[in-house]
Simulated scan of single mutants.
Amino acid sequence: MNIIETERLTKTYRRFKKPEGLSGSIKSLWKREYEEKAAVRDFDFTLQEGEFIGLIGPNGAGKTTLTKMLTGIIAPTSGRIHVMGFYPNDLKNEFKRQYAVVMGQKSQLFFELTANDTLRLFKEIYELDEKQFRETRAYFTELFHVRELMDMQVRTLSLGERMKMELMVALLHNPRILFLDEPSIGLDAIASNQIRRFLKQVNRERGTSIILTSHYMEDIATLCDRSVVIHHGCKVYDGRTDALFARYQKNKKITATFSQELPPAQGPAAENPAPLPGQAGGQSPRQLPCWEVLERTPHKLTVLVPKEEAGAALAAIMPWGPTDISVEEDEIGTVVERIYQEGAKGVAL
């Protein structure tokens, strides 16, 4: 069942252009120039009940504008939009009670109140009965492991602790859809992993549909089975996250350590083509132009190879008897940069 449907959804802004200086300001009193900027263009999108999807795009791509239209904050210029059977910009109370928004850079908490008092305040806003409130609070207190923090002022909490409280407040009324905009921004690795684990559990156990916008692609890769890439307001990809990343994972980084010293390189070890280990038995190292040496010490070798050459690279290194060997894919940030570059060139992903 689709709970969000859009068809040719478009949002265009009209912006005033003023010439520089005082004379330009005076001239603009009589004659003004405007330009139109399409923040979102002809956007077709669906979300099924219980889905957890990632919304990917560089700054200015239109992600926030799309989220604002889906939540009714702004009205579209044209196109069709239905969210849970409502036209969002009508802002009916029945609609607003069924979604929640969490923004990593904007807080909805009251910093002078304790976490418990803040939850009590939102209980009244959403008109929850006492039994439902207590059950939901107990569930999330246990899930987030924050029982000892509930009577602390919000302003005394760490950034990671406050984000847990933000999620508790957002999920208190059991929304059908949760919109997350950079929820892990500024968090350390431990807090980010905790937030990811909690979100996955909420999606699985409570059936909450989640739309996640994040520049931390580890969030997207870990949480979202489906991803939508938006660039210059247009959708350039909508499909499985693993397929998207697999398409743009072009290299493998192989790191091997050795108990015995490697033979000296024939020429500068950092150049490409680079001399690398060959077969055992004292044979000369062989040249493989597709390998790029990232690091070479007497007991360690790190090379970057095209993913289709990873097997050959391992076969060449193994006869030297490495004590440890690891194979890593391209960093997620590198992959996303490639995605954005193709989107900027108008290449359909």
Rank of each mutant, 00 (worst) to 15 (best):
P19K: 13
E20T: 04
G21P: 03
L22S: 06
S23R: 11
S25Q: 13
S25W: 12
I26E: 10
K27G: 03
S28C: 12
S28I: 08
W30A: 08
W30P: 06
W30G: 09
W30L: 15
K31T: 10
K31V: 08
R32G: 12
R32D: 12
E33M: 13
Y34T: 05
E35F: 02
E35W: 10
E35K: 02
E35L: 15
E35C: 06
E35P: 02
E35M: 11
E36V: 13
E36S: 10
K37N: 07
K37V: 15
A38G: 01
A38C: 03
A39Q: 07
V40E: 00
R41M: 05
D42T: 10
D42C: 11
F43A: 03
F43P: 09
D44S: 13
F45C: 03
F45P: 07
T46S: 02
L47P: 00
E49N: 09
E49I: 05
E51R: 10
E51G: 06
E51H: 10
F52R: 00
F52C: 11
G54A: 12
L55A: 01
I56E: 01
I56T: 00
P58E: 14
N59W: 14
N59F: 14
N59I: 14
N59A: 13
G60Q: 06
A61L: 04
A61N: 15
G62R: 01
G62M: 10
K63G: 09
L66N: 00
L66V: 12
T67N: 07
T67E: 07
M69Y: 05
M69E: 11
M69C: 12
M69N: 03
M69K: 05
M69R: 08
L70N: 02
T71P: 02
T71N: 09
T71E: 00
G72K: 10
G72Y: 09
G72V: 13
I74Y: 06
I74V: 14
I74P: 01
P76I: 03
T77N: 08
T77C: 03
G79A: 12
G79S: 04
R80I: 14
I81E: 05
I81W: 12
H82E: 15
V83T: 11
M84R: 06
M84H: 01
G85Q: 06
G85C: 09
G85A: 09
G85S: 12
G85W: 14
G85L: 11
Y87M: 13
Y87C: 05
P88A: 02
N89P: 12
N89A: 07
D90L: 05
N93L: 13
N93G: 05
N93I: 09
N93H: 04
K96V: 10
R97S: 08
Q98G: 02
Y99H: 04
Y99Q: 01
A100H: 08
V101G: 04
V101S: 02
V102Y: 02
V102F: 07
V102Q: 01
Q105E: 02
Q105N: 08
S107G: 08
Q108D: 10
Q108M: 14
F110G: 04
F111P: 02
E112W: 11
L113D: 05
T114C: 03
A115I: 15
A115E: 03
A115R: 11
N116I: 15
D117R: 13
T118Y: 13
T118A: 09
L119Q: 11
R120T: 12
R120Y: 14
L121A: 00
L121Y: 15
F122G: 01
F122A: 14
F122K: 00
K123H: 11
E124K: 12
E124R: 13
